[in-house]
Write a protein that binds this DNA or RNA. Structure first.
Lengths: 248, 248
DNA sequence: CACGCACCTTGACGCAGATCAAGCCAGAAA
DNA sequence: TTTCTGGCTTGATCTGCGTCAAGGTGCGTG
């Protein structure tokens, strides 16, 4: 029974719509087996808080579908997003049972969770996985540092342009967006969430979106769908060096 | 000869003024031996650039003494610091031979360097070390996220207060500064570097320092030495939750 | 259908912090 | 001693973005 259970789950895991970057992507059969044994799924409705800052959680997880955010809130209500979790991103960390930020479901979210205790044991046993986790964490650190430049030094217009180019890259999945060609995607965030991402107010976000639209840098179809007729033109607006879509 | 060499170096490593958080802190004799075999020292003068963004480097390193920064510069000269490296901090990363940011010596700096190739091999062989590196990276990520809140949502005054409390904690080495008691330390950064840290101009930094001084939150002895008569009063100014000196 | 609600847009106005400009201070060099 | 230089301070003015306020839009529900 345990055996069939595992078989079933294994198929299940490979079938996750997006393969989990963190743990499944390069795992071999043996590791997959162990992962499947400690795995379960949880779903959250849009707007629901997945974990509150300071809360204890007994699992780590990988985002299977939907969008979630990490954010910090000050006493007087000022809020700053510090992490944006899309498909296959990782939540939680080994060797720390409390979470430091509010984790919120922005759309309906499905998580593939791993029970913390056994996951940590797996980590110690399988250097492979802990090295993979290190790589991921370094990538996140890079993203955080790019974000810091945006927050600290860019104008509102540059912030919006940078945000759009980041989302375009992540949503379309291609690191090197064909510059010059049409790119289209749905914004995974409301204007307010964008504001929390960029350290702006939602009014300023709205104004700058309108302004970029007026200047034909973007085309809006409805409020959420964005078409970028010329990706290079967008990159011009970000204030970054012009040498292509390099993240770091 | 190799043997004596190693003996010598081993003593040397333990004797590093500050024990390297990254690699030596918890290493056993066997690991120390391997580390010592691939180790060398380099020094830089204040103001010197250690590595330029995009440059290839064949070593990773631990800061033994002095202060260095990671920073990004935009075409038009706007600069944002994204990392502050004090004693025992780690520079560089496994599996990436180019560096993404300018690394600059702010004071005279001594690095304890490890040749990249053998260091990476050591990482694969010793899960211990790669796990330690993961822990460190997660700490850095936390710091980056705290920093993002500062950059995105805090006022100039709050930024300065937050900066001072961070430096106080790092310079005095105590995670839990005795709130209420006197704390004194030397600023490791110029006003300009503080501005680059906080996403401000140097004039605003100067004005806010003066303002905090006028309000008796801090005492300045010369331009660099800061005395904080009441640490709680400083924490009040940061805008953070009042429950003590928690970093995350 | 209309009603409500969540989300978005746009306008008017004020202020925190940037910018421009002048001068101060302390240590080093002559 | 004076002079120079790099870092710091302070003042006056300007401006980008926040704040407050008033609608607009579109979807789900009775």
């Amino acid at each position: 029974m345990q055996h069939t259970d595992f078989r079933l789950e294994k198929v299940n895991c490979s079938a996750c719509p997006i393969r989990h970057r963190a743990v499944c992507a390069r795992a071999d059969d043996n590791e997959l087996e162990k992962l499947n044994a400690i795995k379960f799924y949880r779903s959250f409705k849009a707007g629901e808080t997945i974990v509150w800052a300071g809360e204890e959680v007994d699992f780590v997880a990988s985002v299977v579908g939907g969008v979630a955010t990490l954010s910090q809130t000050m006493e007087d209500g000022r809020r700053q997003m510090v992490g944006l979790l899309l498909g296959s991103d990782f939540i939680g960390r080994p060797n720390r049972e409390t979470v430091a930020y509010d984790v919120t479901a922005i759309s309906d979210v499905t998580l593939c969770c791993f029970r913390r205790k056994p996951f940590q044991e797996l980590l110690s046993d399988t250097p492979h996985i802990s090295q993979r986790l290190l790589e991921m964490t370094l990538d996140e650190l890079d993203a955080a540092r790019e974000w810091m430049l945006i927050l600290g030094r860019k104008t509102a217009r540059e912030k919006i342009a940078s945000f759009l180019s980041i989302i375009a890259r992540r949503e379309t999945g291609s690191d090197t967006v064909d510059t010059g060609s049409n790119v289209a995607f749905d914004l995974p965030l409301t204007r307010e969430a964008m504001a929390d991402y960029l350290g702006l107010t939602l009014e300023t976000v709205s104004r700058q979106m309108s302004s970029l639209k007026r200047d034909d840098v973007i085309v809006l179809e409805g409020k959420r769908r964005v078409v970028i007729p010329d990706f290079n033109a967008l990159l011009e607006e970000t204030g970054d060096d012009a040498d292509g879509g390099v993240l770091v």
